[in-house]
Amino acid sequence: MSIPSPLPDPLVELVAQRFRVLSEPARIKLLDALRAGPASVGELATRADLSQQNASKHLGVLHSAGLLERARTGNTAQYAIADPSVFTLCELVCDALRDRYSALQAVLPPPQAPASR
């Protein structure tokens, strides 16, 4: 499927919205925690080192954006990845960061040891 160029304004807004949703570090932590499979809010809060209230808030945003699906069983909600393309995007970003870091390492001199007195 080809992406039109220039991008139509409605598509630009949808792409920007997706990046806004992913711009919060806590949400990246929660998505990463869900790579292991579906989990409850409490389990995800523990895995992502967040309070349960904070995790719940961010999970709601990810769910509203269509990145997560939620299944309720009594008082417990189980979250799972609804859009696995989010992991492809994360891998692309991580690979680009790794390449950039490697390029910087190649041109920067190694740190100098402090001079002794």
Score class of each variant (00 low, 15 high):
Ser2Lys: 09
Gly42Thr: 11
Leu7Ile: 13
Arg70Gly: 01
Gly74His: 10
Asp49Val: 05
Asp99Pro: 00
Ala26Asp: 11
Arg27Gly: 02
Asp32Ser: 10
Ile81Thr: 10
Ser102Pro: 00
Ala26Asn: 04
Leu11Arg: 06
Arg100Asn: 00
Gly60Trp: 13
Ala26Glu: 09
Leu89Asp: 02
Ala103Gln: 01
Pro111Ser: 14
Phe19Glu: 00
Ala82Phe: 07
Glu69Gly: 11
Gln53His: 08
Thr46Ile: 02
Pro109Tyr: 11
Ala103Met: 00
Pro109Gly: 10
Ala55Thr: 10
Ala115Leu: 04
Ala113Asp: 07
Cys90Glu: 11
Arg72Ile: 08
Leu108Asn: 01
Asp83Phe: 06
Thr73Ala: 11
Leu92Gly: 08
Pro4Leu: 05
Gly60Cys: 14
Leu68Arg: 03
Arg98Asn: 05
Ala48Gly: 01
Ala82Cys: 05
Ala115Cys: 01
Val93Thr: 03
Ala48Val: 02
Arg72Phe: 06
Tyr79Cys: 08
Asn54Gly: 06
Ala103Ser: 04
His58Ala: 09
Asp95Glu: 10
Gln52Ser: 12
Cys90Val: 09
Asp9Val: 11
Pro6Ala: 15
Ile3Trp: 15
Leu30Ser: 06
Ala77His: 13
Gln105Asn: 07
Gln52His: 08
Pro38Ala: 15
Ser56Ile: 03
Pro38Ser: 12
Asn54Gln: 07
Asn75Phe: 15
Arg70Val: 13
Val86Thr: 11
His63Trp: 08
Ser85Met: 06
Leu50Trp: 03
Ala65Ile: 11
Ile3Gln: 14
Tyr79Phe: 12
Gln112Phe: 10
Leu62Lys: 12
Asn75Tyr: 15
Leu22Met: 04
Gln17Val: 02
Ala71Tyr: 09
Leu59Glu: 12
Gln112Arg: 14
Thr73Gln: 09
Gly42His: 05
Gln52Trp: 02
Ser2Ala: 13
Ile28Phe: 10
Met1Gln: 07
Gly42Ser: 12
Val107Ser: 01
Pro25Tyr: 15
Thr73Arg: 09
Arg100Glu: 04
Pro25Val: 15
Phe19Ser: 02
Ala48Glu: 02
Asp99Val: 03
Phe19Pro: 00
Pro110Gln: 15
Arg117Leu: 06
Leu7Ser: 14
Asp9Trp: 12
Leu67Asn: 01
Val21Ile: 13
Asp9Glu: 13
Met1Tyr: 10
Leu50Gln: 06
Ala106Val: 00
Gln105Lys: 08
Arg98Ala: 10
Asp99Ser: 08
Ala80Asp: 10
Arg18Lys: 04
Leu62Asp: 09
Ile81Cys: 04
Ser85Leu: 07
Leu89Phe: 14
Ala36Gly: 13
Glu91Gln: 13
Arg18Gln: 05
Pro109Glu: 13
